[in-house]
């Protein structure tokens, strides 16, 4: 086995892992604040990919042969804004009324499933009716797929950009959490939501901010994912979202750094195991859940080992 092959696997694993990490951060943030598995988060990522696709379509007049960088990043910006709004809307329209009524957790989870299915069915209808089919090819500037040759390695530009972007975003999220006022408020809310409300903090604004932040990151992750596997469909978010959740649990749910580490581990597993044992290739999608079951068996708090009742983030 030569070094080039191993290196290639590592780089690809990093790239895939970054996409999981970006989505896992959203799970971990919402879980930290509300103790809620936001089942709809994977579909929020799908909304991000679709809104970027539709924005690109409108900006280029549905002719995707030449997409300039400016147009592409405008579409990404629109997608981030739209997705954040959708994220806030899910909180305001579905979770908040239930939380205000003091509904049991199972109601919240069922509502989350309902939102997830609603988004999937809605975009299924939109895709079938207005885009001409469930599956759509995702277009982006050619520059991203330029291949760089380093020795025997062949690396598309995208594969390098995504992990770097993820690390930068992780640092940005950590900065927000630890150095800004809203970040302190988020951590306080995660620590004890009732006391923070009593202290007069606007908990709705803070939770809305968490949803917006998580959704924006999911949008970026979704766009990166659609660029790596240049196809989108309304049900893409379900499996990726579940895997990202598994990554968040593996890393230690409630911890942002843990989510990124968990994402990288999962990415490596999904790339490296089929790389070295090709006969296991068909099982790729099951690794996340097998990993999750092992983590639950031996270390339920995950790698970063956060005790839910004591400390978060």
């Amino acid at each position: 086995m030569d070094v080039g092959f191993v290196l290639q696997q590592i780089i690809n694993g990093f790239s895939l892992g970054s996409m999981y990490a970006l989505i896992a951060i959203g799970y971990t943030l919402v879980y930290g604040v509300l103790r809620l598995i936001n089942f709809a988060h994977g579909d929020i990522m799908m909304v991000g990919a679709f809104s970027a696709f539709i924005a690109l379509g409108f900006l280029t007049g549905w002719k995707f042969n030449h997409i300039s960088m400016f147009v592409f990043f405008t579409a990404v910006g629109i997608s981030i804004i739209v997705t954040s709004i959708v994220g806030i809307l899910t909180y305001v329209s579905a979770y908040k009324p239930l939380l205000d009524k003091g509904a049991p957790k199972i109601s919240l989870l069922i509502t989350a499933i309902g939102i997830s299915f609603f988004l999937e069915s809605l975009f299924n209808v939109i895709a079938n009716q207005y885009l001409g089919g469930t599956y759509q090819a995702f277009y982006f500037p050619k520059w991203f797929s330029t291949i760089i040759h380093v020795g025997s390695l062949t690396i598309p530009v995208l594969t390098i950009i995504v992990p770097i972007l993820t690390i930068l975003i992780l640092l940005g999220v950590l900065f927000i959490l630890y150095k800004t006022k809203v970040g302190i408020a988020i951590r306080a809310l995660a620590f004890d939501i009732y006391t923070v409300k009593l202290m007069g903090a606007n908990s709705n604004f803070i939770i809305g901010f968490v949803f917006a932040l998580g959704s924006a990151l999911a949008a970026i992750g979704g766009i990166a994912y659609s660029m790596a596997y240049p196809s989108i469909d309304p049900y893409m978010g379900m499996l990726v979202g579940l895997k990202a959740f598994a990554a968040a649990v593996v890393g230690g749910i409630g911890s942002v750094t843990g989510a990124v580490i968990g994402g990288f581990i999962l990415g490596f597993a999904e790339i490296a195991i089929p790389g070295f044992f090709p006969e296991l290739g068909g099982w790729k999608d099951a690794f996340a859940f097998i990993l999750l079951i092992f983590v639950l068996l031996f270390r339920p708090t995950g790698i970063m080992g956060i005790d839910f009742e004591r400390q978060r983030f």
Binding site: I37, A286, F289
Partner: peptide
């Protein structure tokens, strides 16, 4: 906690 939901959902995929 709610791990049952995720594990069983993943189980369907497995």
């Amino acid at each position: 906690g709610d791990y049952l939901a995720i594990v069983t959902l993943g189980f369907g995929f497995i």
